[in-house]
Design a protein around this nucleic acid. Structure first.
Lengths: 191, 191
DNA sequence: TTTACTGCAAATGCTTTGCAAATCA
DNA sequence: TGATTTGCAAAGCATTTGCAGTAAA
């Protein structure tokens, strides 16, 4: 699944993609990169990339992407989304995010290595501060074992202090409260 | 899935489970803990726990566990293994390990927080050195964001230097070489 | 005896794939 | 035109679940 096509020298800007203007630019930039690797620019691909970039700060899963994309063009099929998302991950444009839900979420790769902190109580997902520095620490840990880290999203599971305050006790948690159980599959809204 | 039943005060010995004697002791210890939480000691559970402990240094998946267990008692069913393994994870005796293969592996929790380094080239999995210290670093990162980490296995994906030397290039990797692609499902031997 | 547990088979749900038609270069 | 890509429907596969029978306490 991962970066067969990833180019470590590619420009991954650490900026927020705030306006539609910026999104359009980025869409064309990504499509151009695809083309440079020998892939074709197609309208489903443009639409999918656009939708992902418009939701750059969410962590959509394929089902959610399908809904968002079909609002614009109902003819787009599920398999195309799977295939495009796989391609974008291989290109290094997306990170696959695993929140232990039984399906994958995807996020625009603004950093090569990215950390998520996931609350088992309320399901909240936050990013670490100073990720560049923390990535470097993780890279050193890996190098120390003779490994070079690839770009990826690293998920850390815990409980947020708000949930702890509300009485969440990991050793005595009432079933059914946790939003993050694998059991509960389904489409649960962008995070 | 995770630690509804986990007891942070439980004794998770950082010792190697080398001999059958030690395994037997541990099996009974785990079963006793189950019983204390109100679960029953049954022969399928004893067999499953025993097999997992005998393979404490592997990372078996459910399919592999089924094979190992059915060698001893062919009447044990797949669902029982899923259910027991889930229970053991909830108790904090096992960590669920995700190597991005499309299924879970399981490992005896000798540490609360445990790191795996996975090579995308050859599939090799190694553990970090000084895990206690590194866990503490990760815990500090989480606390800094108002989260308390739960026990878990954290997987870091990279390329080992041997693979790099052999010419593995993440940006130009020939399809089909990587043992870690999601596509290739199946049972691929204990790691 | 009561309740938990088990095995089986069926169901679930995410993801992948074969293929003919459509599209890009 | 020729190779990719797409959409659809059908598979594939890990995991979960309903239920009737079995076994622990």
């Amino acid at each position: 699944m991962l970066p067969f096509l990833y180019d470590p020298k590619a420009d991954r800007e650490v900026i927020e993609i705030v306006d539609e203007e910026k999104v359009k630019e980025k869409v064309e930039e990504y499509l151009r990169s695809l083309q440079e690797k020998g892939f074709r620019i197609t309208s489903p691909r443009r639409l999918i990339v656009e939708t992902i970039l418009q939701n750059w700060d969410k962590h959509p899963n394929v089902r959610e992407l399908l809904d968002l994309i079909q609002e614009k063009d109902p003819s787009i099929g599920l398999a195309t989304i799977y295939r495009t998302v796989e391609l974008l991950v291989e290109m290094g444009f997306l990170h696959e995010v695993n929140l232990d839900e039984g399906f994958s979420r995807f996020e625009v790769s603004l950093k090569d290595i990215h950390f998520h902190l996931v609350c088992r109580g309320c399901g909240r997902v936050v990013h670490l501060k100073d990720e560049d520095q923390k990535s470097q620490v993780a890279e050193e840990w890996a190098e120390d074992m003779g490994f070079t880290l690839l770009p990826q999203s690293i998920e850390l599971f815990g409980v947020c202090h708000e949930c702890l305050r509300k009485g969440f006790d990991p050793s005595r948690m009432p079933q059914g409260e946790c939003r993050c159980r694998r059991r509960r599959r389904m489409h649960r809204g962008l995070m």
